[in-house]
Amino acid sequence: MNAALDRVGGVYALPVILAIIAFAAIGSASTWVTLTAAGLAMGMMIFLMASGLSLIFGLMDVLNFGHSAFVSFGAFIAASVLAALGVWLAADSVLLNLTALMAAIAAATAFGALAGWGFERVIVKPVYKDHLRQILITMGALIVAEQLLLAIWGGTPIAVARPAFLTGSIIIGDIAIESYRIFALLLGLVVYIAMYFALNRTRIGLLIRAGVENREMVESLGFRIDRLFIGVFMAGSALAAMGGAMWAGYQSLITPALGQELMIIVFIVVIIGGLGSIQGSLLGAILVGLMTNYVAFLFPKLALASNMLLMMAVLLWRPYGLKPAVKG
């Protein structure tokens, strides 16, 4: 099985294989295209949330169960900014629409970076190297964060306005794809490419990849991993908040429970993809995004269970995930 898979591109062929199987099961080309686009868009948003978590664990072995708080806050901050800029959103000008959307995403992302810095210094730093306490304290922080969300935004669902230029669908023949999904897909791709270059073409990226493999050796070469880690933690939290902001617009109705719901999916993605690698996170996120949408159409009751099954199948086959970072 491994040899056959390697001939067609290794684990990267899995989403394609999944899409082909789904095509046969669904039968209708236009439905399949719509579901595939939805799956890819969802995958890209989940990737934003998962990649940071994966690097944070890879670099410092830190288990951050509070990661989803950044997703939730990102979603709610974006919703508030969008509400405040409602006039621009509704305006008949793509430029104003886009400015409002970008302001919302930027506000969420900036909050994620700043809050990530505070979170790392106050909550995570005292418990480096102690998994049990990391789980307890980050879960505690998550509960506090959720109470804060409730206190600020209340418990009732909040409607999220979409910019006018992204409200409709793009129609090609009998195929309809929501414009927002295309935007989510493109944004995710841009972030992935930026991360790929940062990790593979810069010295900081080289240090991060090396640190994920062997922290002690990087320190023995004279580099402060703890300083590098703050940067990675901030970037990971910022990306989670960006993913949350995108998710808010995608869902168009958000509640404070959103973070927890997504957290399960994000953990599944990180585990499927393999810890510490952004290629793995992207692969896992796309698999989960596609799986969720295909199964939701074919067997609506199995949507979440299908991801659990996917995770178990992957772990039985590759216990370290599909594309784990090399560990020195």
């Binding site: 080289l206 990849r209 090396a210 994920v212 493999e213 062997n214 002690e216 050796m217 320190e219 023995s220 070469l221 004279g222 580099f223 402060r224 991993i225 970072a325 090399v326 020195g328």
Partner: peptide, 28 residues
């Protein structure tokens, strides 16, 4: 002293397990 500072004084360490970064190229 923290390990990185010791290294910066000009001490290099070749550990028993060699500490090669397998995911990086020889050049990297």
């Amino acid at each position: 002293m923290p390990t990185p500072d010791i290294a910066r004084l000009g001490i290099a360490y070749v550990p028993e397990n060699m500490g090669i970064f397998g995911g990086l190229t020889v050049e990297e």
